[in-house]
């Protein structure tokens, strides 16, 4: 171990600075997800206090630590750095004061439930549809009549690219032509956390009733999702649902699982 009092190794003050900077970099950049800045500030406070306790626990080490500081503040030959530091420090503090009082004008965030609880049933053009139990009338064809099933998927694909692509995107990732101007952004249907977690009947509700059909926790006023019952018939909606799962290689959630 290097003996600092004999002048070997790094000066104590440099060691302290290195440990402090190292701790900051480690906490700031190597932890995912990132630590909030207020918590980071707390951690760094404790790192600082610990370092001071360590330094002052030994009189010699403390003296060693203080020496360059005292020299900087008193020695005649350090006049220039002293003046520079003496000017920069208050300016820095003044800037922090300015930045602290000058807050960015940003609207308050708003709570939003992405997949709110559906109603038990909906009225679709005069027909009652049970949102909890309704089944896709074409789903059973997947095994029974694969060719007919592919035709329904193909029709669903046409429905998608005539209607949905503008917001949900060519690759169903919610990044269509108009996505940059929408808040909430269009759903990413390819994400495993979206349609794979839902039943087909839930999708039928979301598509048929769109933004206006959302409950309050889904912020219906901000959603640009059309109530597709204005444009599509029942078969078209079930077909586009087939396509959404088929294209993204996902499967709807069902009660049997």
């Amino acid at each position: 171990m290097p003996d600092k009092q004999n002048g070997r190794g790094l000066p104590v003050i440099a060691q302290v600075a290195l440990v402090f900077a190292g701790a900051y970099l480690l906490l700031r950049f190597s932890v995912q997800p990132p630590i909030p800045s207020s918590v980071l500030g707390m951690y760094m406070f404790f790192v600082g206090v610990s370092l001071m306790l360590f330094v002052s626990s030994d009189d010699d080490r403390f003296a060693e630590f203080k020496r360059p500081l005292i020299q900087l503040l008193t020695a005649r030959e350090h006049k220039v750095p002293r003046l520079v530091l003496g000017t920069v420090f208050p300016l820095l503090v003044a800037y922090l004061g300015y930045a602290g009082a000058h807050t960015e004008i940003a609207p308050p965030g708003q709570q939003r439930t992405v997949h709110p609880a559906p109603p038990n049933e909906i009225d679709f053009k005069g027909k009652r549809i049970d949102v909890l139990t309704a089944e896709n009338p074409f789903r059973h064809l997947a095994e029974e009549e694969p060719e007919a099933f592919r035709e329904h998927v193909a029709r669903g694909k046409d429905v998608y690219y005539r209607n949905c692509v503008f917001c949900h995107g060519d690759n169903l990732e919610g990044d269509g032509l108009y996505a940059h101007g929408l808040s909430p952004i269009p759903a990413n249907l390819a994400d495993p956390g979206t349609i794979a977690q839902l039943q087909e009947s839930y999708l039928f509700w979301r598509i048929a009733k769109g933004g206006p059909g959302l409950p309050v926790e889904g912020t219906p006023w901000d959603s640009a999702m059309p109530a597709w019952e204005k444009f599509l018939d029942e078969d078209e909606i079930w077909e586009v649902i087939l396509f959404l799962y088929d294209f993204t290689d996902q499967h709807p959630r069902s009660w049997e699982e």
């Binding site: 420090f89 208050p90 300016l91 820095l92 503090v93 003044a94 800037y95 922090l96 004061g97 300015y98 602290g100 009082a101």
Partner: peptide
Amino acid sequence: AAGMMGLGA
């Protein structure tokens, strides 16, 4: 705020 804090420092 900037003035006060700078002066304080």
